[in-house]
Design a protein around this nucleic acid. Structure first.
Lengths: 220, 220
DNA sequence: CCGGATCCGGGTTGATACTG
DNA sequence: CAGTATCAACCCGGATCCGG
């Protein structure tokens, strides 16, 4: 993309990650840690393969991500975010928070369960930060996701745990509705949600009452 | 722009404000409140006039901004953000925080003093939130800017106050360096910065020690 | 001068086919 | 699996023009 050529921090940021598809690639790596080329094609559906290759080159040159030759089991290279790339997490969280209402207006299009991770990080909080951490496994057939308490907050990532405190099994969109409080637990159960483990973990990980103002809540 | 057609809050947000120039238009309206078409052309240098007209239409349809026919003195319409548009402020602040290091690497390109406002909001904090509010006038010849304490935070906006507690007069880039701590006050004075008023206001509005973690600082 | 609309050349995107 | 090559369609940017 052409540079905006403005001496403004926002414009400079957009010079790097403002190109079409770029932030979605970062989203993918943020939630999935390390991805092969094919993982990215699956996680960013709709991108043309040449554009994905171009963008990965751009973002690598910009220091947002890097490609590693191979961890021994696999015979291919993987992509992962640098420290600088992970520093984009707050940007993506704010974008997710702003975009969440649009999701209700039009729930169409491709769906991946782990995309809801950023939403969970924004909407949910750990109501008992003093207690030992808990982890909830969201078990959709494809694309399992983990929610865990870290530091008084809730963090999301793709994957499957050995010993989660609670497992929710069901359709991805159903679990998404549950996370964003559009669906009650009882309703979700009726629609096919299965749970196994400690429901206390689910009560502990709950939306903020005060909307989205962790700092203000902490000060009060 | 074509929709990403992904049922993901980030993708949905980018469907609305991911288009080139869009976030820079929002930046402008955030910092300057209400702008005429010409103000926007000046505040977003480099944009083609047809694109500005297109984007304003798009963003109005999306509910991010609206145009008002006229406040009586002027014979033209002005643009301003809706509530939904102002809700993009956290996104822009995070982008500004992420882009700030890039500004040091390459300080070239067009410059407007008020662009530094988002940077100030991110880097500075009110060290004495219990005290009555203070306001600092940043007085560059063109494009004067105000920093004021609101609610324990620092807010920036374009304009000129009647009775600021402190006035800093000088080159915009010099003041920007001062705000982001690249230049000391003594150095800035040598390079032509003039001050008038209470220096206590400047000591009160100071960078966080703990980097950028207001919530963590509040909890500590 | 302000607030656009229109036109046009060139660069980018996106879909598909192809290759190591 | 991990890309590269190709090509049409679209979008961007610059210039120009026009009504108030």
């Amino acid at each position: 993309m052409r540079s905006y050529d403005q001496c403004c921090p926002v414009a400079r940021a957009l010079d790097v990650i403002g190109d079409r598809w770029n932030l979605l690639i970062v989203r993918e790596l943020l939630l999935r840690d390390r991805c092969r080329y094919t993982d990215l094609r699956h996680g960013v559906p709709g991108i043309a393969t040449n554009l994905l290759a171009d963008r990965l080159r751009d973002l690598e040159r910009a220091g947002v991500l890097f490609s590693e030759d191979a961890p021994p089991p696999i015979a291919t290279s993987v992509f992962a975010l640098t420290e600088r790339g992970r520093a984009l997490a707050p940007v993506l969280r704010e974008l997710a928070a702003w975009g969440a209402p649009l999701l209700d207006e039009d729930p169409g299009g491709a769906f991946r369960t782990h995309w809801m991770g950023l939403l969970a990080e924004v909407h949910l909080t750990d109501n008992e930060p003093e207690q030992p951490p808990v982890a909830v496994q969201l078990d959709t057939p494809e694309d399992p996701m983990i929610l865990e308490t870290v530091d008084g907050r809730v963090r999301a990532r793709s994957g499957r745990l050995q010993h989660p405190d609670l497992v929710l099994t069901g359709d991805g969109r159903l679990i998404a509705g549950l996370l964003s409080d559009r669906v009650t637990l009882a309703e979700a159960r009726r629609q096919g949600l299965a749970t196994s483990g400690s429901m206390a973990a689910l009560r502990r990980i709950r939306p903020h009452e005060s909307g989205r103002a962790p700092a203000a809540a902490a000060l009060a």
